[in-house]
Every structure is written in structure tokens, then in C-alpha cells.
């Protein structure tokens, strides 16, 4: 196994903890829907799996593209819709 990739993973967790603890409770719902959208990054893997002549895997890839796109588009759009509503006096 490539040790670099594990390094990246562990450092990313630390960065994540650091920045997410600074998100105030009032924005926790947008944080969750926003992270829904970010977990749609699986779309990148899904695109790679739709390899031509990849057999059944190609169709699993297609299904993954659909589900991940729902998360990406739906997640970012609904987060924006919510954040628009947060107003000051």
C-alpha cells in the first residue's frame, strides 16, 4: 500500500475536525446538506467506472453516476436555498 495516500487521509481528517468545529450550531443543517453534496465526489469514481466494454461494471457505474449527481446537484442547490434565508436584522 502507498503510505502517501494514508498520510493524505489522516491529515484530511485533522483539517476536517479543525474547520468543522468552527461551524456554529445555527448552520448545522446546511453543513449536513453541504456535506451530502461533497460526498457526491463519488461521481469522479463513477465516471471512471463507466469504462467502455467494462461489462456489468459499466452499468453499475451509470447507476453510481445518477445517484452521485443527485447528491451533488440536490445538495449544493438546497444548501444555497437554505443559506439565502439566513438574514440579519
Amino acid at each position: 500500500m502507498d503510505i502517501n495516500i494514508l498520510t493524505v487521509f489522516i491529515l484530511a481528517i485533522f483539517v476536517g475536525v479543525e474547520i468543522i468545529t468552527k461551524v456554529p450550531p445555527t448552520l448545522h443543517t446546511p453543513l449536513m446538506s453541504g456535506s451530502n453534496a461533497i460526498s457526491g465526489i463519488a461521481i469522479v469514481g463513477a465516471i471512471i467506472s463507466t469504462e467502455i466494454n467494462g461489462g456489468v461494471g459499466t452499468y453499475l457505474g451509470l447507476l453510481a453516476v445518477i445517484l452521485a449527481t443527485i447528491n451533488v446537484i440536490g445538495g449544493f442547490m438546497v444548501t444555497d436555498r437554505m443559506l439565502k434565508m439566513f438574514k440579519r436584522n
Binding site: 493524505v8 487521509f9 489522516i10 484530511a12 476536517g16 449536513m32 460526498s39 465526489i41
Partner: peptide, 11 residues
């Protein structure tokens, strides 16, 4: 995927 997954997992 690893970085995004780690961020969402931590969140």
C-alpha cells in the same frame, strides 16, 4: 475521494 470522504466523515 479520500480527502472529501475524510471531511464528510469528520463532519
Amino acid at each position: 475521494l479520500i480527502i472529501s470522504g475524510a471531511l464528510v466523515g469528520a463532519s
